[in-house]
């Protein structure tokens, strides 16, 4: 019975993941391989960034709130791209919130604990999902309609040039594990339902949920990747790497906010405030 329950949990989380995240890894890989009728528009310098404004805006008619379009109306390149990053973060946080609610048991937790789990988990989950949109040369943007090269991002002035490079480095190691969307669904759920976030009231309730997810993940990986014996411990190590990545990211965002003339979305402000 327990085995059947864990399989059901894996299936439920996979379904919730496909329902709430618009760009699955499977879809992203098709875009990245250029196997779509309209390949992504490549942004590799200031000119192509300007052109992206027109091209992607045409694709996005009726979607006035799209971050890329509004951000491209800003004057300075770095500020524009920083706003694009923020827009993607905010969009992913809303998707992650809906996904979290679909994790069995999550919605019954104390509301303040739900907030704490999201506050500390969403960026770790975001960088995990972002890896699906990255290859060694760049990053898919605007729902797969655009592709920004890693070199262009690296060529921006500091500190903006430091924003995405660590995420590329993480993504290259993480993508080498060759997880699919069904594995990622369990991994992202394990990130969110984590019993050792600061300030949780009902730790045992969260640990109970977390244990089922981790157990389901272990069984699922055995079935889905029978030849990769050490995949499960390798993934657990990635949880620690993600925590370090987010700590550094939060520091960098605070530095950008302090030293650059740029604003931070209110949702991101509340997440970063008193985080670490």
């Amino acid at each position: 019975t327990q085995l059947a329950d864990l399989k059901t949990l894996a299936r439920q989380l996979h379904e919730a993941y496909l329902r709430h995240f618009h760009l699955s890894k499977a879809k992203a890989r098709i875009f990245l391989a250029g196997k779509t009728s309209t390949p992504p528009f490549v942004i590799h310098d200031l000119d192509t960034l300007q052109q992206a404004q027109q091209i992607l805006a045409t694709h996005m008619q009726g979607d006035e709130k799209d971050g890329l379009v509004s951000a491209l109306q800003e004057r300075e390149t770095e500020s524009r791209l920083f706003r694009c990053c923020q827009h993607t973060s905010v969009e992913t946080v809303t998707q992650l919130t809906e996904f979290a609610k679909a994790v069995p048991g999550f919605a019954n937790l104390d509301l303040n604990d739900q907030v704490t789990l999201l506050k500390y988990g969403v960026h770790e989950a975001f960088f995990t999902l972002l890896a699906s949109c990255m290859n060694k040369d760049g990053l898919l943007v605007a729902h797969g309609k655009g592709f920004i090269t890693r070199e262009f991002l690296k060529s921006l002035r500091r500190p903006f040039s430091d924003l995405l490079e660590p995420k590329f480095q993480f993504a290259m190691c993480f993508n080498a594990l060759q997880l699919d969307d069904s594995d990622l669904a369990l991994f992202v759920a394990a990130i969110i339902c984590c019993g050792d976030r600061p300030g949780l009231a009902n730790v045992s309730h969260i640990e109970f949920i977390q244990e089922s997810i981790i157990h389901a993940l272990q069984l699922h990986l055995q079935a889905n990747h029978p030849d990769n014996t050490f995949l499960f411990p390798k993934l657990l190590q990635k949880l620690a790497d993600l925590r370090q990545l987010v700590t550094e990211h939060a520091q960098l965002v605070q530095d950008i906010k302090k030293t650059q003339d740029t604003s931070l979305h209110p949702l991101l402000q509340e997440i970063y405030k008193d985080m670490y």
């Binding site: 809906e98 907030v115 999201l118 506050k119 509340e270």
Partner: peptide, 20 residues
């Protein structure tokens, strides 16, 4: 609770759009 107004709102409403 006041510190995390938007997260509370997102958790309590379904798919509430967050304007940038």
């Amino acid at each position: 609770k006041e510190k995390h107004k938007i997260l509370h709102r997102l958790l309590q409403n379904s798919t509430s759009p967050v304007d940038l």
